[in-house]
Write a protein that binds this DNA or RNA. Structure first.
Length: 546
RNA sequence: GCCUCUGUAGCUCAGUGGAUAGAGCGUCUGCCUCCGGAGCAGAAGGCCGAAGGUUCGAUUCCUUUCAGGGGCACCA
């Protein structure tokens, strides 16, 4: 019996009691069941009687007593006790609890999938680093976390498109091109230009493709140089992301918005909506009507559209493409954008609470220094991957909530590789995988299964932890917090290691293979499955040996 | 000044309107003649930044306050 099934059973009892006229209260959609810290409080507990007692004008303990009578009749429930002010402590029959092992193995890769977000059509935009330099550590957090969120949302039934917005328009591209040009000719970095070593590499790549650029003056060379350098840089970004296990569904070009007339069109549409005004030659969007602290310019007095205008056009594109929820994952340095992005949504006639969601991730600091490609002291994502591996990096970024600031010391991270929790989890997977193979070599099989034999306390604990996976996934999806998966996996690994130390899947020595060994193989393999499914949601590999 | 995030064990950080607040690292004690010891069992270590409020119950929600990070462009 899974916690969900137990929860449903309690709801059913409540509904029956209402129907029978024993209580008069609105039955909540779901009843929360929790794993009590102490085993003395049963396998699962609920505080539903405390919550509903008052609403039903009953003493919580009387309400609880009513529920106990009905719950005790439910198949699979071994006992129900009232504790304290009205907690219900529920103990499952061993067999009902153990049945979960078979449920998981049979569900396979699908175990953990749920319907919490079925029907949601979501656009998730993240990373969106400027194509003027390589991805660096500042981009890695959302790359890891954003991709994990996309996976978790999909597992919860949402239809998700992940998107990378390429800021390939505006003056920065010219500065970028001039930086490459200057480097090519041994000139100093231009004012406000990019100094990093990668500029030299780009210059070499560009020259290899178009040697004639070396002979041309800046004005002649720039357009083609710009195009080639941009293409090379974007290709580098894409390949780094791929090595990190992050594959976007869509790469969306900002300049395409300008060239295709989408920006002008967006301004016209917003004007129709009545949120535009003209002042001192510029065109403004009245974002203050929707919570922004100042109005924003869309078209400058000189006729050029602002970056914000492209943002508006981009939002409308997402809306036109049918996404009911647009999620933006931004760094804390963009926190000032939240209100104006939401104002765009509202100006476009959307609900700024339901149709747009802006998540702010705190920045990662490295040795206390801020990183900037302009300053040239970047730590590249590719280097980090090479140093500590994509798995360890993704996991260590995914195990913290986005709003907690983390300070990474690359040297420390590299040194502490063996202390990284990812190894604890991956090791549990490898160990359970190996244990299964060994057991089967000794004649243990999954041909028979008797759930009532899983009586060891460590088995009760492991089963309880495994059973929580679907609700953990659903919770992670709804809260956009994939770190819950990581923390949960650490719990699973811990429960597995304890179980492994307490029981045996393979008989001791030359002992006979008994029914209990066959049954434990199911539990072992169920654990392997949950660990693999969970790691997959984080984009981390589940090795069969280490 | 305004907005926002953070403050929990020596360190890095989880966590919840409920029963005894957790993990890893570090420290200390045990456990390899047998399925992977990259592991297990146990010990020590806490004014959940501070003060008010809501509640039967607050570390959790609200207000104030102190401390730290980040942000406040007709840049992109």
């Amino acid at each position: 019996m899974t916690p969900e099934e137990l929860s449903a059973a309690i709801s059913a009892c409540l509904s029956q009691a209402v129907a029978a006229g024993e209580i008069a209260v609105e039955v909540p959609d779901t009843v929360r069941v929790e794993r009590p810290k102490s085993r003395e409080h049963g396998d699962w507990s609920t505080n539903i009687a405390l919550q509903l007692g008052k609403k039903a004008s009953m003493a919580p303990r009387d309400f609880a007593a009513m529920l106990v009578r009905r719950l005790s009749e439910v198949e699979g429930i071994g006992g129900v006790e009232i504790a304290g002010p009205g907690f219900l402590n529920i103990t499952l029959d061993t067999a009902a609890a153990g049945e979960l092992a078979r449920t998981i193995v049979e569900a396979g890769d699908h175990f953990g999938h749920n319907q919490a977000l079925t029907g949601h059509v979501v656009n998730m935009e993240f990373v969106s680093a400027n194509p003027t330099g390589p991805l660096h550590i500042g981009h890695t957090r959302w790359a890891a976390l954003g991709d994990a969120i996309a996976r978790v949302l999909r597992a919860s039934g949402a239809q998700v498109t992940s998107e990378y917005y390429i800021n390939d328009a505006g003056n920065q591209m010219n500065v970028f091109a001039r930086s490459v040009y200057n480097r090519m000719h041994g000139l100093p970095v231009p004012e406000g230009g990019y100094p990093g070593e990668y500029i030299k590499e780009l210059a070499d790549i560009v020259l290899a493709q178009a040697p004639e650029l070396a002979e041309q003056d800046e004005e002649t060379a720039l357009p083609k140089l710009r195009e080639l350098a941009y293409t090379a840089q974007l290709a580098d970004i894409k390949s780094t992301l791929a090595d990190f296990g992050v594959n976007f569904d869509v790469f969306f070009s900002e300049s395409a918005l300008h060239d295709g007339g989408a920006v002008a069109d967006a301004v016209a549409r917003l004007r129709e909506q009545g949120h535009i005004f003209d002042l001192e030659g510029a065109v403004w969007l009245r974002t203050t009507d929707f919570g922004d602290d100042k109005d924003r310019v869309l078209i400058r007095a000189n006729g050029e559209p602002t970056y914000f205008a492209a943002d508006a056009a981009y939002y409308l594109s997402k809306k036109d493409r049918g996404f009911s929820e647009k999620i933006y994952l931004l760094g804390a340095d963009h926190h000032g954008y939240v209100n104006r992005l939401k104002a765009i949504a509202a100006c476009a006639g959307d609900d700024k609470e339901a149709n747009i969601e802006v998540l702010i991730g705190q920045l990662i600091s490295v040795n206390g220094a801020k990183l900037s490609k302009r300053a040239g002291n970047i730590i590249e994502l590719r280097d980090l991957i090479n140093w500590i591996g994509a798995d360890a990096l993704r996991y260590s970024l995914a195990r913290y909530p986005a709003d907690s600031p983390i300070a990474l010391d690359p040297e420390q991270l590299k040194k502490n590789t063996n202390d990284n929790p990812v190894f604890y989890v991956q090791y549990a997977h490898a160990r359970s995988f190996g244990a299964s193979a060994n057991a089967q070599a000794k004649g243990v099989t999954r041909e028979s299964f008797d759930a009532s034999l899983l009586t060891d306390p460590s088995e009760n604990e492991l089963l309880a932890v495994l059973g929580q996976f679907p609700s953990v996934v659903a919770g992670a999806a709804q809260s956009r917090e994939p770190h819950r998966i990581a923390r949960y996996l650490e719990q699973v690994a811990g429960a597995y290691h304890s179980w492994y130390a307490a029981t045996r899947v393979t008989p001791l020595g030359d002992g006979p293979v008994e029914e209990v060994h066959h049954t434990r193989l199911w539990l072992n393999d169920a654990t392997t499955q949950v660990l693999a499914n969970g790691l997959s949601l984080l984009g981390v590999s589940a090795p069969e040996r280490m």
